[in-house]
Design a protein around this nucleic acid. Sequence first.
DNA 1: AAATTTATGTCAGTCATGTTGACATATCTG
DNA 2: CAGATATGTCAACATGACTGACATAAATTT
Lengths: 187, 187
Amino acid sequence: MTDINFKSLVRGSAPAAAAGPLQADAPAAPPRWDIIELLFFAYRDFVGDADHVLEAFGFGRAHHRVVHFVCRYPGLKVADLLDVLRITKQSLGRVLKQLLDEGYIVQKAGDSDRRQRLLFATAKGEALVVKLAGLQTDRIHRALRGLGPGEAEAVGRFLRAMIDRDDPDKVLQTILQADDAIAKDVT
Amino acid sequence: MTDINFKSLVRGSAPAAAAGPLQADAPAAPPRWDIIELLFFAYRDFVGDADHVLEAFGFGRAHHRVVHFVCRYPGLKVADLLDVLRITKQSLGRVLKQLLDEGYIVQKAGDSDRRQRLLFATAKGEALVVKLAGLQTDRIHRALRGLGPGEAEAVGRFLRAMIDRDDPDKVLQTILQADDAIAKDVT
DNA sequence: AAATTTATGTCAGTCATGTTGACATATCTG
DNA sequence: CAGATATGTCAACATGACTGACATAAATTT
């Protein structure tokens, strides 16, 4: 199962009908144009926050994603990262090498399996991640401020439910479990 | 090796602190890692729905965005589309030409200003847009089903509040107004 | 010990989509 | 008419995906 690039395979979709039996009879629900387009604009501005800072570092979104997940999940293996980002070794290698060379990330051989390169963010890397997350958090807080009690939690439940469950990589599993467990510390 | 391309230039940004004077005193709000990562995964899977279908058509996400907004806002000018998508004429030109050549979109000269090329989706284009929107709508409905009364509306308010207000292009303005007014169907 | 598998790195080439800058053309406006 | 505007197009390039092949080291199996 080496290369094969899991991405092009499987994921036969069919995500809709599998959800529940009650849905099969109503296939012609009107498109939610509002949510579709709000998601487009919201996500565009959301990642735009980070883009401006990244430019000053000579980095792109790819670098952000890598250093973010490494920072958040210390000791992540390269293979894990490939699962999370759903890109190829080659694509990851380029940005990872830059982040290593410039001291945002360090590698450490695994203790039980010394072929593994466990990844850790340096202080420099963590500072960048925190800075970018701060910008995005500001935006999130601004958006959550307009919501009533309990509604912020509903937003979290909505987003979790938007995520595919059928291909849970290690990190995603951690996130969903944590969310399912806690899911109440919302402002 | 640092390629240090042009990206290492300016762009001051500072979008966070400009929000309000009350914000200046609380800079250290903890990052909302949960929402940040949920947005990443949710958006990834959300656009993934369309990606699979688009592959079969030989199209990419760029084509989807173009034909989507043309279909949704008939008579859109090229300049409007550039504003919405925030890409250059050149980038838009490539995908737009393909969509025109393959009959998903047609052009019509503006009546008051015949330099303008007003864009319209053909039946073929609309069918594609509806098909893709259907997949995404299925996902959205699945996610909204888990919410209580009024919470779906809260999700919409959250997403609207996540969008920058300070650069309202024509389409975005329409969307925000429509959402503020009726929050329902826009066609 | 040797053979195989696994985890990772790397090379060469391609593609999609973004960029800049310059220039052409048609059309509107003063 | 002169200039501004809306659009199209050309050349050149950057980023970040991709494929497929191959290299190396370490673990595992035989």
